[in-house]
């Protein structure tokens, strides 16, 4: 029975167990032995051609690799701590100054305060007495006006 080429290849490449290989060797025909010999020729030709040709070139990878591997550790830049602090300080100063200026402007330009609706107070002065008018919100949500009279003695007014 003819041995398939894939089995022959496995035999040639030592991919069979020793028992399998031994059993297969018993079956080999002359032609199959010739195929094995041809595979051997090819192996020697390819192996020797590549190995001999590759070996004829000098090779020292480490000297160049060492330089390349050392490169990252030698070029690591130092952290710019001081400039960053200065920059932060300048920025903080600028922000604080701007806020202070804005606060001053708001204080100067703020709208004049007027009596609120919850309690308006006005002072009245008439001859002989003084009054205070108060307008306050009551429990029902309506405004209630209170007038507080402060009576003064005639002689006091006269002295004025």
């Amino acid at each position: 029975m003819a041995v398939a080429d894939d089995k022959l290849s496995k035999l040639f490449d030592n991919e069979l167990t020793s028992d399998e290989a031994e059993a297969l060797r018993q079956e080999l025909s002359v032609e199959e032995q010739a195929k094995l010999a041809a595979l051997s020729d090819l192996h020697l030709a390819v192996h020797d051609a590549v190995e001999t040709e590759a070996a004829s070139h000098e090779l020292d990878l480490w000297s160049q690799l060492e330089a390349k591997l050392a490169l990252p550790s030698t070029v690591v830049p130092e952290a710019p701590v001081i400039p960053l602090r200065r920059k932060l300080l300048l920025r903080t100063t600028a922000v604080v100054s701007a806020l202070a200026l804005a606060a001053s402007l708001l204080f100067v330009l703020r709208p004049a305060t007027s009596p609120g609706s919850s309690c308006d107070v006005e002072e009245l002065e008439v001859i002989g007495s003084g009054a205070t008018v108060l307008q306050v919100a009551d429990d029902r949500g309506n405004d209630t006006t209170l007038i507080w009279f402060d009576h003064q003695e005639e002689d006091e007014w006269e002295s004025l």
Partner: peptide, 21 residues
Amino acid sequence: MAQTSDSSAKVIPLPHQAGPA
């Protein structure tokens, strides 16, 4: 048709066994 080898050809040197380590 492949021929079966005789007993004298039982031990066939496999060149690849002496190939690259």
